[in-house]
Design a protein around this nucleic acid. Sequence first.
DNA 1: GTCTATACGAAGATAGAC
DNA 2: GTCTATCTTCGTATAGAC
Lengths: 187, 187
Amino acid sequence: MAAGVRQQMVDTAAVLLAKHGLQATSFAEVLKASGAPRGSLYHHFPGGKDELVLAALGAAGDRAATVLDGLAGQPADLVAERFIGLWRAVLTRSDLTAGCSLLAVTVAADSEPLLDRAGEIFAAWTERVGELLAAGGVPAEQSTALATSLIAACEGGVVLARAARSMAPYEAVAGVQLALVRSAMSG
Amino acid sequence: MAAGVRQQMVDTAAVLLAKHGLQATSFAEVLKASGAPRGSLYHHFPGGKDELVLAALGAAGDRAATVLDGLAGQPADLVAERFIGLWRAVLTRSDLTAGCSLLAVTVAADSEPLLDRAGEIFAAWTERVGELLAAGGVPAEQSTALATSLIAACEGGVVLARAARSMAPYEAVAGVQLALVRSAMSG
DNA sequence: GTCTATACGAAGATAGAC
DNA sequence: GTCTATCTTCGTATAGAC
């Protein structure tokens, strides 16, 4: 399949971004990890590395969006629990070596389009989580702020856990944010 | 002053880490931005780049620690407000181009000592903020989790603001976390 | 669509003079 | 302590053959 090779490289790039950051995600690493043929790199990505990273960000954004789409109609605390669980899985499955590819690109972006794309995806997550929280029992006037807080806390919690090489910080953050959503539901 | 040059390089490195990340913080950049003499690099940092980055992390950690030390005896919500204000200042003064150097190193660390050092400093912040919250009216059994949540949310909020090129996400996170601390004080 | 070879630049690190 | 020169490695990107 023609698109298979490209998709393979994109997915591999997303993983490497989440693990090692933007600069350390080189073509050589992507090729080695994905097993993709060397000669076809600029055939699939004529725009060079930026095009590959852009595609990887999109893939990472879509993965989370897919999970969120499956949560329509669920109570707000379950929505929060699932979002929290998404990042818990990233940490545990990688033995605390991986994080969020969007965050990695944001803090090391060397070109405007990369930063913009990360911002768009973060905004899309925030909007979607906010809608789900509102539909799940959180007052509408709090839903956006609460969604932003949940996403920020998870992102920060993932970083703290990686630095500590322990899930403890993440679980502390998760507990607080979940309680926060629950209290907003009853309030 | 002999130590002046070294300190200058360390401070400059901390700023560059916060702005552009670990790999993009090269010796050439540090020298250009700090005005330090080129030839003295490996004289001051025989351990190479890792030693420079390690020192920069320490400096960043100390800066926050100094602010926290001045908050002893203050109410918990004021402690939270000051910690939130610390990162708000980083964002606004840099026109949303700078973040946390510890976070930047954590997500792009290519050596164990770097990750370990970031973890130590995050842990020190968490401990100190937890003590201040407890002394300031937050129940002791909640203080550590709340401190972790506050730090994680601020770190994540800074990233969201940078990606969005807007303070809005950060202020949303700040409002939620501050309300959370206040409710823990009365509860 | 995939290959090899290669140009080009950046970055870390070292050596030896002053 | 500071300088210049140099080495090595690595990463992006291009050219041209198959």
